[in-house]
């Protein structure tokens, strides 16, 4: 098991009380596996990602729960040790690649520095490695490109450079937070192709955070669906997308326009996501759920309705 989150709680202390951004998240990513973490905006996907690598900004903090990386509990590790893990064994890619790229440094400077910060190798070796990594993510003429500045790249190329940097140390885990959301379809496809290929070749585990169920369908092995700070359902992509058990997952799938529904009304989830400061007690989805009963005011326990599947719902969708 590359990554395991056990009942993770990350809160932000605000003037009006604790904002429970991550409210009891449990999930796992196996070696070489792609786990898609999907949910709508504000559901807590990014905070989950940041919690794993100890990058939650104050006033946010991990209140309870554990982050296990390759079996080792890394929750609350001192910053220098976390930093070592981050550059080396765990990499993160963001929606805005400029979060990992320094705009005023040429690509070669940044990459060679990254290599040398972690491995004690000569400048020449570092440069070769940096060039090869650019080539692997499909950047044409990587030698010339090494001496460019980030602004000289298109958005898609910048994202590929950020991925190349993330891959440099052959990390065991990559956390990707909506890295293709801002990109055009054909460019997104190129990025997905690169990631798919490299992860498969090297056995890298991927936590792919996105709001786009269709991307998860095409890329991931397993999926975890997040709503209001919790994983409401998880399992293999085929199982969850073809036979959703949680009513939120079913609603989400019905909301996606698709081939066989042309011109027909989409299934819609009534209402909107509750404010994180004012969530209904028990199942946070119950104010929008057509199957809700009084029981749902209690907290739905985490169950395993099938092998390799988790669910938090009292009255699962029946098919």
């Amino acid at each position: 098991m590359t990554l395991e989150l056990r009942d993770l709680h990350t809160h932000f202390d605000t003037r009006v009380g604790a904002l429970r951004a991550v409210d009891g998240v449990s999930l796992s990513v196996r070696r070489g596996e792609v786990l898609g973490l999907v949910g709508e905006s504000g559901s807590g996907k990014s905070v989950t990602g940041f919690s794993i690598i100890g990058l939650v900004d104050p006033p946010g903090r991990i209140v309870s729960g554990q982050v296990l990386f390759q079996g080792r509990d890394i929750t609350g590790l001192p910053e220098p040790e976390l930093r070592k893990l981050r550059g080396n064994r765990i990499a993160m890619i963001f929606q805005d690649p400029m979060m990992t790229l320094n705009p005023v440094l040429r690509i070669d400077t940044q990459r060679i520095e990254t290599v040398r910060a972690h491995d004690n190798v000569s400048h020449v070796v570092a440069r070769t490695r940096a060039r090869d990594a650019l080539g692997q993510v499909g950047i044409p003429s990587p030698d010339e490109r090494l001496s460019s500045y980030p602004h000289q790249f298109s958005g898609g190329m910048r994202q590929r450079v950020a991925i190349a940097i993330a891959l440099l140390h052959n990390p065991a885990l990559i956390i990707a937070d909506e890295p293709t959301t801002a990109l055009d379809v054909t460019i997104q496809a190129q990025i997905l192709a690169v990631v798919q290929k490299l992860a498969a070749e090297r056995g890298t585990s991927l936590l792919w955070i996105t709001h786009d169920l269709s991307v998860v369908a095409g890329l991931a092995d397993r999926v975890a669906v997040m709503y209001a700070g919790r994983i409401v359902e998880s399992g293999s992509v085929d199982a969850v997308l073809d036979r959703p058990m949680h009513h939120y997952t079913a609603g989400l799938i019905g909301s996606v326009p698709s081939r066989n529904k042309r011109g027909a009304k989409l299934l819609q989830i009534p209402g909107m996501t509750p404010s994180p400061l004012d969530r209904p007690a028990g199942c946070a989805f119950r104010t929008r759920c057509s199957a809700a009963t009084e029981t749902c005011a209690q907290e739905p326990p985490l169950t395993m309705p099938e092998p390799d599947r988790t669910l938090r719902c009292f009255h699962p969708v029946r098919i």
Binding site: L192, A193, L213, V256
Partner: peptide
């Protein structure tokens, strides 16, 4: 464009048929 659009019904697709930047 159609080949590259992720769709719910396309599982574990092979992306990236179209090369080059815009």
């Amino acid at each position: 464009l159609l080949a590259e659009v992720p769709r719910l019904e396309n599982r574990r697709s092979h992306f990236g048929a179209i090369q080059g930047e815009l």
